[in-house]
Nucleic acid binder design. Structure first.
Lengths: 283, 283, 283, 283
DNA sequence: AATGAATGAGCTTTCATTCAT
DNA sequence: TATGAATGAAAGCTCATTCAT
């Protein structure tokens, strides 16, 4: 079975060493920041986790069923009941959610069957239903978890008392890392898919979006007040920034298309810092 | 029901009116363009599709299954079949695709049932299957149609011998119009949803994306050579522009979230022109 | 299209040269017959007909449908109406029945679709329904035709004033030829399949069977009276003979199983002549 | 409905009673056998299958298709589901196969609907599909079962160290019993029907046939060596015997046609023993 | 007569959910 | 708590037949 699925998320947390940050600022032609930002400090070992999905041996089919030693009567599994050992509800929920995420990831919501989630989680279908009311419930819980993690991240980034350029770089670096190393873009696409149909999920996504934009806007406003950013409509500028992130993400969700993220980040930074910052801030 | 969704496409033929364009350039602090382009002249033909759905009375069950349900013997004395007028395959295909698009739009691919497409198109299920091989086939044809229309548009816009700022504004205006007036963002989200599962669609989306970026990049490169745009990695810059479009689109696909598109366009233009153009071009 | 399907039946008629017959009698250790039987004299050229089934070019599918020169809207055939030239109802019926027989032969009744019969016959579906009421009707007509031909044959063989041994050899030779050269066994199996379900067909098959047995029995009885055949229950003996024919036929309908018909005939003749004939007749 | 069809198989275990056998041999004018074999002792266990079909009240349509028809939310307050008692896969498979056999028997493969099999077996359609992959799978399993039973029978009969005449009588008695008392001929016809279309079934039937003939041939050869049977092409003679069985069977599959089996057996025995045995064996 | 688009009941199969164990 | 057999309402699709042309 799959273990450490949690790491899929843990691995999102990125450590920005100040050295790297300094180098970036230099590369983008920005004045060197004095206050380094500390992002997501936790012990996750990162991208090394995402092992290939364990493929379960398919149910054996008879090459010559009518000739096989087992008559048709023995074709299905027998009555052995190997029960999984008891665990706390929270552990079980995590276990199920992790399995479900992996499945939704691979196939999307509709193509994922409860049977698969059960198999992937190592529980029985009945077991799943003991912990969750429905498939939809599982998905919603999953989105909620994702939502909370994203919110934590944004809180951490934006509340840091950094200058705007540092924040931009931080954001950029963060997303580049996340997009490159994880399946985040794909999951986002799947969530969007569901948001069309599930009002609750739609609301969550919208709230997350507005929160994102709102906080970005307030940061930008603060920076405008400080003279770092040119006078613009803050919310629109924040929406623009968010759109860039979403857009890159969406682009990466399709096919094998992987842009040169390094170059994309560099170019975007150049364009955005020039477009957003005041001449003074640009140095 | 259907309210002339066909118009959604007609509205794509966007014509940039020179007056509006001049105003915009002025607003964004750009030098005034010499070659005007027109703005969106909606030429909807308001087609008279969607005949009333024929409702047939239910027919009795067959006692002799082996030659039912099609046996003429069983049906003697029953009511007449009310058949939709014969039409050319082309007309019918368009009609079906329009109906299907409306359904997919409302519910997404999976939640849309063939029955609904049939009802919406005013045909029977069998009629649909006479023209298309499967539900998936319908969707693919739909994407193909959308794809062709998008390609036409981009060819039209980018090949025009405009200066880069005009092109940017043209793009911006186009998308703002399209996003505001149509369901394009939602449909794009639904396509993305399917691209995860249908390789063919995935390829189409990817090709469209690459084509978009490629053409944008070549335009940008030309502009760099002319000294209008600062020296940047052209493909990355194009990817950035495309990402912005996609990102705004994605954002609008969820919930009732509609940003102030006017302001967003204005702000984006300011940021991008400043970020992309050379000081001379900014004049 | 398939032509000369009629030959499938024509080819059934077998010419027994007296020379061959003499040789056989000699081989089976029988006294030499004086009255040669003349069977089915018609100019059919026999087995050389059954050309491989013409395969119609499959409807073209796009390798890259969304990229193809023809948009999805042009995918179905256009309105050209190439009408088949008028023919007499009988000719049409024969044409349709021949096509239907070929189809039923290949796939059986249920797996044969009216579309296939239409294609095979070179008519449209509507055209078929002008001449026949239903699929079932076509099948019944087909069985009727087969029935009549079989009846003609048996009348010809049995009414000839031959001694019993000659008749037996005649029957044997006939069926061996027929089984080896045509698809008769398969068609018989398909008829049996339907007889289970269609009372009318069942009755026809039963009548044919009883007629066969009845005539055989009367021939045997005559031979008993003449002292050629041992005293036996005539109907049972006839049933036995019929069963042998049917059984061989049935065995050949499955798989690629083809017994050595020559040897089978020889052995059967030996066993049956010894088992049936009186010592005098055996000479 | 079902009337202990299971008994049909039990009746296959044939035991040739010495008394009957002696009488037969006497009737056919054969020397008396030394090793008696028993006759058909029907040990039917009369299983208590086929619980009453649970009929559920229809449930309202779903407004929100995307999580219907399985959403628990929609079903609050409805009646309880009445579920059939859990059983082991083996028991259920047998139960389903028995029901399926009865249905196929009545209507043939194509005319039998999964609904009927479900109803007949007392399970729901879903329940059937839990145990079998498809309708075809059910049929194949059924043929497999029949195949195995037939093989067992032939092994039992032929391996017995009886003289050839006893074996012939044994076979004859067996089939007469089986043909008279069961639906075997009809089922065989239905299997033949499918063999035309299903390669796997075709192979099974062919293998069964070849096996039958092969074993019969070896028995005959042994008898030839012992001087009981005249020198003949053993395989052809075996094919002849098999053809007789199949032919009688086929004849009985149609309509209400039932020959006088007693007489048929007697006559056939006379003809065959005379035709096959040496003068010494005939005594 | 002939065409072929259109019909629609019914089919097999799926799968979220339930419940006896 | 957990299991997995059982449920049953659809869903996508088929195809004999009809009928406007």
């Amino acid at each position: 079975m799959i273990d450490h699925q949690c790491c899929l998320y843990e691995s999102m947390e990125v450590q920005f060493a100040s050295a790297a940050m300094l180098a970036q600022r230099f590369a983008y032609g920005l004045p060197i920041a004095r206050r380094p930002i500390g992002l997501c400090a936790d012990g996750c070992r990162g991208a090394a986790h995402h092992a290939p999905v364990p493929r379960h041996a398919p149910v054996a089919r008879w090459a010559q069923p009518w000739n096989s030693p087992h008559s048709s009567l023995q074709r299905r599994g027998t009555h052995r009941k190997v029960m999984t050992k008891h665990r706390s509800p929270d552990e079980r929920a995590t276990q199920i959610l992790d399995a479900a995420r992996a499945c939704f990831m691979r196939k999307g919501y509709f193509a994922t069957k409860m049977d698969e989630i059960a198999r992937e989680s190592g529980l029985s279908k009945g077991g799943i239903y003991f912990h969750f009311d429905s498939k939809r419930d599982i998905f919603r819980s999953l989105v909620e978890r994702e939502y909370n993690r994203d919110m934590e991240f944004i809180d951490g980034v934006l509340d840091a008392e950094n200058d705007i350029a540092t924040i931009l770089i931080g954001l950029g670096e963060h997303f580049v890392q996340q997009f490159a190393a994880t399946d985040k873009p794909r999951f986002t696409a799947i969530i969007a898919e569901m948001a069309i149909r599930d009002e609750e999920i739609d609301e969550m996504v919208q709230e997350l979006q507005e929160s994102y934009i709102g906080r970005l806007a307030s940061v930008l406003e603060r920076a405008m007040d400080e003279g770092q950013v040119r006078r613009l409509h803050a919310t629109s500028a924040a929406t623009l920034l968010k759109a860039i992130i979403d857009g890159i993400q969406a682009g990466m969700a399709v096919g094998g298309s992987t842009p040169d993220l390094e170059k994309l980040l560099e170019t975007s930074m150049e364009v955005l810092t020039r477009g957003l910052l005041t001449d003074e801030a640009l140095g």
